[in-house]
Amino acid sequence: MNYSLEIKNLRKEFKGFTLKDLNIKLEPGFIMGFIGPNGAGKTTTIKLIMNLIKKDGGQIKVFGKDHVAAEKEIKDRIGFVYDENYYYEDLSIRQMKNIVSKFYSKWDDNQFNSYINEFDLNPKAKIKTLSKGMKMKFSLAIALSHQADLIIMDEPTSGLDPVFRRGILDILYNIIQDENKSIFFSTHITTDLEKIADYITFINDGEILFSEAKDKILDSYRIVKGSTKMLEGNRDKFIGLRETDVGFEGLTNNINQIESSFNNDVLIEKASLEDIMVYSIRGE
């Protein structure tokens, strides 16, 4: 099968930080959330996929083709939205669009105009007058107007208000109605992904902790709460722990073990993606 995105053993070394053993697979028709704390390597990974920086090892395939050998062909089908969206400041939206559209073989001006309308952007507005949110909307309009089969987004919603973010999610849902399109979406705002993502890849400190179907992840992790004295001899059963004067809270991915160790003396609740992320990192 042709994955939309297939990363094998990707490696990139910097001074003081190494990205290694990255393995990710995304099938067409699905949304993958790429979560991790700041500095975990999310932006680096995306830059590697887009060949903005050179990999030191491993393989990246997009639509089944090598991302460097078929770079132009692949990028023609990729729509991108970055965290910082830079454009030529003195140009207007329309002028900027005219520059960019010439590079795409399947550019659809009508589609672009309808998005600009929907996003309430003025085509004559100069780029330098746009807020961060408006630049993001502009990027999204471009990304969605050339029949892209893969949308890559790097922290597109950070710094934006929740109303806005929900609006973006609605748009993403609409894109994914077409089962040939995929979305790869990095963020540290996990609540965005809790609803929409089909798969979640969690990265920390340059390494992947897990890459799984979201439902499976949320089904296997639990938050356990109880009194501190119950922790005696049981601390190692938790991935991450928070102990206070009034009790403890811990993350586990082995529900059965917890249930048999504690019987009914603890409170077991669903864990959110944020819980999983925070405890997995802090608990180390």
């Binding site: 949304i31 849902y173 609409n174 994914i176 609803k195 993502a197 439902d215």
Partner: peptide
């Protein structure tokens, strides 16, 4: 409803 349409309306994953 299609699995994708339903996922969108309920705001959940299409895998679900």
């Amino acid at each position: 409803p299609s699995i994708r349409g339903l996922a969108r309306d309920l705001q959940i994953s299409v895998i679900t």
